[in-house]
Design a binder for these strands. Structure first.
Lengths: 151, 151
DNA sequence: TCGTTGTGTGGAAAAAAGTGGGAAAAATTG
DNA sequence: CAATTTTTCCCACTTTTTTCCACACAACGA
């Protein structure tokens, strides 16, 4: 289970040191084999342990490919999915194409989201976060599932 | 069950000494393993024993992630949830990111709230408290659930 | 009053993690 | 096929984090 924020510096080669607290878990659960793809809603990357990803990929592939929306999802998500491996120092190399999609330069933020991780440019993340916090006050409609949620 | 206010001083490293009366209880109930995240309504932190938090995290993760309001909650709450461990002296280290969100410098107030604790900058806490007391005089309407409550 | 115990506080030492770079291997190109 | 570039792997240094210990102080009881 992933949670929490980590700010990380990419090195000159585009490598990211996975937070130490995740490493043991990742080696045990998927031998350090991850898959990264793009988020189509926001300019960030989604990172999954390989098993989790493959389950999702099966679901996406099962969508009716004559439906334009489904086809678009397939092309964007599966088309950008890239295998990543933890190296001996617990780092992964992020391909140039994904880094430029999410605008990742040096300072990035890795956000735990349960079964997956999200990877943002640190600046984009903080800006987005401020927007969300302001919106939360605006008191929009809450979905039914949220009414009863008590924190 | 937590209740009552404690004012505590953070040390230079951002560590907070948990009130002694909670320590035994926390070690017994969750081995001193806590999770802190942000409150999206106010600039304060929420601190849960790990089991309590994981139950909440499961509920939040189960929300439909295509719904923007739900997605925002997931990112804000799970995205900021950070594991804390009581050290040998009964202290927890609060990460910089959470401290700056809640504006915690040296003087903080820890508020017992049943299953969870709230952590405020002491100054923010006292100011907020005054506002609430004034609002209470303004005599707003009570929601149905409150009419029958007798203190 | 003095010793004892429990708590708050600071800091040093040890361990772990971050970081950079170079050499070997692989791939690409002419 | 050789030359060059790119990628991968691994080592070593630096910095950060964690753990552990010691001291000060207050509360309490003898």
């Amino acid at each position: 289970m992933f949670r929490g924020v980590n700010t990380i510096n990419l090195d000159a080669k585009g490598r990211m040191a996975m937070p130490a607290r995740y490493r043991e878990q990742l080696l045990a659960h998927c031998s350090g084999h991850l898959v990264a793809t793009i988020d189509t809603e926001a300019r960030c990357l989604l990172v999954y342990p390989v098993q989790e990803w493959e389950e999702i990929q099966r679901k996406i592939e099962a969508l009716p490919s004559l439906n334009p929306v489904a086809r678009r999802l397939q092309r964007l998500l599966i088309g950008h999915a890239t295998d990543l491996e933890l190296d001996g120092s617990g780092r992964v190399l992020l391909p140039q194409a994904l880094r430029s999609y999410a605008g990742l330069d040096k300072h990035v933020a890795l956000i735990g989201q349960g079964k997956k991780l999200e990877l943002w440019s640190e600046q984009t993340w903080t800006e987005q976060r401020e927007k969300w916090l302001v919106e939360a006050d605006a008191g929009e409609e809450l979905p039914e599932e949220l009414r009863s949620l008590s924190l």
